[in-house]
Design a protein around this nucleic acid. Structure first.
Lengths: 122, 122
DNA sequence: TCATCGCGTTTACAAGCGTAATCTTTTATT
DNA sequence: AATAAAAGATTACGCTTGTAAACGCGATGA
C-alpha cells in the first residue's frame, strides 16, 4: 500500500500531519520557510502524493483541501524499521551504542530514555 | 565529501566493509546471495562508487582490488544523524519511545540498552 | 464583456538509480 | 594462430525525483 514517499514529498507530508485539511495555498505558506520552493513545485508534490494515494483531497468550492491518508505514526514506524534493518541488523541496541560512542547522547537524553525503559519493564 | 550512496550501492559497500580489498569477482560472489544481480550490475555499481570516490581501486595484474575509502562507522554516523533529524527532530528519545510503543523492543533489548546507558553515566 | 487571477493539470527536463547488454582489451586455451 | 574467456569501460533505458513553466478554466474586478 505505502507507495514510497520521497524526501521533498516528505516535507509536504509533515505540514499536513501538523494540521489538516489544508488548501494548496496553505501548504505553500507553511512549507515555504523551510524549503525554498515555488508554489508550482508544491502543487506538483501534492499531485504526486495524491497519485500515490498517500493524501486525499476533498472538494471545497473551486479548490481542494488536502489531508493525509497515512498516519505519521505509521509512516515513521515503517521508516524506522527499514532504517534499523538496513544499518543495524534490525536491532536498536547497536544504534544506541553507536550514538553513545559518538557522544551524541546528552545526560538529559540518557535520563529520559532510562525512565522510559523503566516504565516499559512493568 | 560524502557523495550520496544509493541503496544498491550500499549493498556493495557492506560487502567491502566486511572484507577488503576484493576483486569485482569476489564482490559479485558475496553480494549475489542477497540481491539477485548479474555480474555486470555489480560492476556498474563498483564503477559508480569509484566515481563517487567512496571506494578506491588498486591494480593487481589485469584487474582491480577494491576497498572502501569511507569507514562504515562514518557512513552510519551520517545516516543515523540524517534519519533522526528527519523523523525525530534530532533527538533519540522519541525514537526509543516510538519503538517502545510499537512493542518493538524485546525485554532483552531493554536490558541491553539499560546496561549500556548505565555504563555511559559514569 | 474582457483582462486577470487563483487553482488544478499537463508537460518538461536534467540528474540519479536499478538493471543490464554490448564493446574493447588482454590473456589463456586449443 | 584462432578462439574463447575474463575484466573493465561504455552505452542503454525506463523510472523516480527535484524543480518548475505552461496550459486551461472558472471567478472576479474594471
Amino acid at each position: 500500500m505505502a507507495e514510497r514517499i520521497s524526501d521533498a514529498e516528505h516535507s509536504v507530508m509533515e505540514v499536513l500531519w501538523d494540521k489538516n485539511p489544508l488548501t494548496a495555498q496553505e501548504v505553500v505558506e507553511r512549507v515555504a520557510p523551510a524549503r525554498d520552493w515555488s508554489a508550482n513545485t508544491v502543487k506538483t508534490l501534492l499531485g504526486r502524493l495524491l497519485a500515490k494515494q498517500v493524501i486525499g483531497a476533498e472538494e471545497d468550492g473551486r479548490r481542494y483541501r488536502y489531508r493525509p491518508l497515512v498516519a505519521r505514526e505509521e509512516y515513521v514506524a515503517g521508516e524506522s524499521q527499514k532504517f534499523i534493518d538496513r544499518l543495524f541488523g534490525g536491532s536498536l541496541t547497536p544504534l544506541v551504542a553507536h550514538l553513545a560512542e559518538r557522544d551524541q547522547l546528552s545526560a538529559k537524553e540518557i535520563d529520559e530514555i532510562e525512565a522510559l525503559l523503566k516504565a516499559l519493564k512493568q
